[in-house]
Design a protein around this nucleic acid. Structure first.
Lengths: 231, 231
DNA sequence: CGGCGTTGTCATGACTCTGCAACATTCTGC
DNA sequence: GCAGAATGTTGCAGAGTCATGACAACGCCG
């Protein structure tokens, strides 16, 4: 898999395909769902970085899905963009009131969609694909899928990369092992939570030559945090 | 020489002139076509950096032109903006399904048009198609359709050439096998993704005598990247 | 037709990564 | 300071990923 993961919930096949095509082309990972049930399964499987939801869905309205996602503690932070066919003011307001982070009226251009996604991801604190984040000499290049320290490439395996990427886009926040597993592996996967420790260690070892391992901080009985402040 | 070249396909003389005037004023090179046939000739003659197409054209719909341009491997990457007179929803959706990168509804202000063009060109992110890209002794001549190393022509088969061309115009970016297939073969073709490995290998073998094969980097579980930095 | 270059597919072996378990160390409350 | 809990460290086997060579299908041109 590649880049940020976006879940597209849309019943009309043609539109869904078009959206997926545009997103993949831009380098996002895409997961598709045609109704709320499938969407829930996908959410349970692995939490995406952003969700696009059609307003009109066959089994249950997209609103309902949005609302429930925003109610659940595990998925509350997931940014949501609603796709609405009508340009009616009422819809937009209702959508936003129920927790969508943004909405976009059909029809829309791929450019428009990508712009919105970038904006929402930025606001959510994670990164759009065309952005570069820098942190004390640590430079994260999303497009290039690598992290450099003073122009030296950090040799990271996939899991370590994703973990550092995750932390770098959410500094100063503590994440429990449970949360990390849900976001980086997928909540249905059966991974021991002690595995996180090992992954953290590998990450620290990779950062150690540059003295940056101190940024990966242990918060006892809570989880881990990425921060440049002293413990 | 002008800056980027824009092809304007529009049957109404007055509108075409107005658009051309605005674009030239902004520093773009402009080429005009009044129908699809002329447009095709212009495309064959010299590939522009962007194409503006009117939705309603006398001989053939602009849609048809868009679709065929996006189907053709040579012109697939050409960004297209559609001009549509009607604000009807159907139009836009159809336009997008057929591959236009953006659309703009008439009437529009010159400022709006320029903004869209800028955004689409930025997103396309490719270097000008008529430029010569040089990379550590590796020279890509897109006009001559060949690649040279210290004035020696690299013996490349078509597929390898296209792949190297693709990578050279987008350095430092990782592309998944899926993406490479979609962009180099076409999204509708069914090609095994392992085929990419083989193609990469052939490319590396061609570059190896010059010690340039190290630029083609494997990014484990993500894809490949063209870069002159160390792994 | 037949040789030649090109292209996609496959099987195999080499290699890296990853999660786990087992043991070592540190921390916390008492 | 001690017991128990939480975290750090290490080696390893299985899983996953990639490079490589062989090969068949195809088109092209004499």
């Amino acid at each position: 898999m590649h880049g940020k993961l976006i879940l597209v919930v849309e019943d009309e096949r043609a539109i869904r395909d078009m959206i997926a095509f545009g997103l993949k082309r831009a380098g996002y990972g895409v997961r598709e769902a045609e109704d709320c049930r499938t969407a829930r399964e996908a959410l349970a499987d692995r939490l995406p970085d952003l969700m696009l939801v059609d307003w009109m869905l066959p089994d249950m309205s997209g609103l309902e899905l949005t609302r429930s996602v925003k109610r659940d503690r595990l998925t509350r932070e997931l940014p949501i963009i609603m796709l609405t066919a009508r340009a009616g003011e009422g819809d937009k307001v209702t959508g936003l009131e129920n927790g969508a982070d943004d909405y976009i009226t059909k029809p829309f251009s791929p450019r428009e969609l990508l712009a919105r996604i970038g904006a929402v991801l930025r606001r959510a604190g994670t990164l759009g694909l065309d952005q570069v984040i820098e942190f004390e000499g640590l430079k994260l290049d999303q497009q290039g899928q690598r992290i450099t320290v003073q122009d030296e490439v950090l040799p990271l395996a996939r899991t370590e990369f994703r973990m550092l990427e995750f932390f770098m886009s959410r500094p100063e926040r503590v994440f429990s092992r449970e949360q990390l597993i849900a976001r980086l592996w997928g909540s249905d996967t059966s991974v021991e939570d002690r595995t996180i420790d090992v992954c953290i260690r590998r990450l620290r070892m990779a950062l150690e030559p540059y003295g940056l391992d101190r940024y990966i901080q242990t918060v006892r009985s809570a989880g881990y945090r990425f921060s440049n402040k002293a413990q």
